[in-house]
Design a protein around this nucleic acid. Sequence first.
DNA 1: CAGATATGATACGGTACCGTTCGATAACTC
DNA 2: GAGTTATCGAACGGTACCGTATCATATCTG
Lengths: 199, 199
Amino acid sequence: MTAQPTKTDTEISGDPRIVATRRRVLEATAELLVQRGFANTSIEGVAAASGVAKSTIYRHWPSREQLCIDAYRSVVQPQETPNTGVTRDDLVTLLTRLTAGLGNSPWARILPSLIDAAERDGEVAAFHRELTRHRRVPMRTVLELGQQRGDIPVDVDLDYVIDLLSAPLFYRRFIYHADNDRKLVEQIVDDVLAGLSRH
Amino acid sequence: MTAQPTKTDTEISGDPRIVATRRRVLEATAELLVQRGFANTSIEGVAAASGVAKSTIYRHWPSREQLCIDAYRSVVQPQETPNTGVTRDDLVTLLTRLTAGLGNSPWARILPSLIDAAERDGEVAAFHRELTRHRRVPMRTVLELGQQRGDIPVDVDLDYVIDLLSAPLFYRRFIYHADNDRKLVEQIVDDVLAGLSRH
DNA sequence: CAGATATGATACGGTACCGTTCGATAACTC
DNA sequence: GAGTTATCGAACGGTACCGTATCATATCTG
């Protein structure tokens, strides 16, 4: 039971029938995850929504969990790392982008379901951990460059800085249910950087 | 359909049968919510776990949602407001308490389910909003006193400060899956207060 | 074109809930 | 103790899914 990503999206299978089926099913699953959440998304529901026969879905995915994980993965897009040479501006760019993603993307709308499922399912938890680590890479890079530049004291743990910067946006989106605008992002970046400079 | 809290816990009904039934059902429901989550907690499951007949449960609660909301409410305990006269220390106290609560309490273990359900159910969302607002009151009070004392600049929005202070703990518990220790709490408080003093 | 392969459609027995009804007990109240 | 009230337990018809099997049909590949 080693983590088997159920094939990457750069599918090697030439057969267009397989490619089309996978695409249709993953799209329908993502849509259902948005509308109904993880626990209320069933294989039969996906079959009905996608127009793909249930038996065909079972030929491609071993379980509902794997299907949902694949669907979620298909909805996450990679982020590029800004590099203007100005730490503050690059952070604002990253957080503004995060704000946009948190707003209305399928990724954000499914995330609560995923977090909830991860509380009880080890497979989902491992997947979520991997995704989260991955998502933090660009900001980590920006902060490392900033540290080399002297914008951030060298004794500060950069993962901690990522927490300080990102967490308020997640919190306000999922718990406090408040809007995140650009002004807020700038204030967070400036306040956090100012706070760290005391070290 | 005005927000009807389905009776407060300070139940006026003298009949001990009713009191006992409500207690048994709410306890079993909370336990099931921890174990299986919101979407996988059914009335029949609660009946089996509590030993209370299904028909009896339906006499007390109109729906699964209302029952789960009541069960969650029964698990939340009110927080008192520290007041040592030292803003920094009071904040550390509050956040340390939050850290403890986030660790292993039923409240924290059910929270992801509740957040997920709130994404799609207006009734749950309203309830969650109410709870969140309520939970923030003690910290708001501490910050107001701190502001009067001059520890926090007057032009700073205190709700924003609550976000900066609390969010990292929630983020690390539910998204980053990292531990929150006392040292981290102190660092957050000191860094945030230092950052705000630039205003 | 011929053979291989993927899909569609349907049916299967089985499980878990739903929300309601009803009569028999048990427990409380006055 | 008599009357009221709450609970139990079982049964109801109905819905949604599960995971598997079968076979005809459609679609690719060489």
